[in-house]
């Protein structure tokens, strides 16, 4: 009986994981011309149309609490430097696919990838 309970819970938890994995993968599908949108406090401040420039480049985003340096290159975008409190944004690494997001909560900065076919598929 107890072994059965273990099995039931294992199946439930695995099912939840699979559903989440499906949602994540679905968001990455059909990524024609991925673009990066950069928001500062819910306001779209910049769109990077070409994530594969000939040469890698960086730009600085200033907000009232500090700055983030964002780098673009090789089909990816990432936060290369930040003076925020926890560096979660820098540790988040490079993103390239639809629905992927980097968030720097203390600076209210959000970078997310959208593509032509699905702008709001992942909510």
């Amino acid at each position: 009986m107890k072994a059965k309970k273990n099995l039931i819970w294992a199946v439930i938890l695995a099912a939840v994981c699979l559903i989440c994995a499906a949602v994540i993968l679905y968001g990455r599908l059909g990524g024609e011309n991925p673009k990066a949108e950069i928001y500062l406090g819910n306001e779209l401040i910049k769109t990077v149309d070409n994530l594969s420039p000939d040469e890698e480049y960086s730009f600085r985003i200033d907000c009232k609490d500090g700055y983030n340096i964002v780098t673009v290159g090789g089909g990816k975008i990432w936060v290369s430097e930040s003076d925020c409190a926890n560096r979660t944004c820098v540790n988040a690494g490079k993103i390239s696919g639809g629905g992927q997001t980097i968030i720097c909560a203390p600076h209210k900065l959000v970078i997310r990838i959208t593509s032509d076919s699905q702008t709001d598929a992942v909510v």
Binding site: G41, Q100, T101, R112, V123
Partner: peptide, 11 residues
Amino acid sequence: SGTSMVITLFP
């Protein structure tokens, strides 16, 4: 962060 976009991290 004052944004609801964090929900994309939920899965």
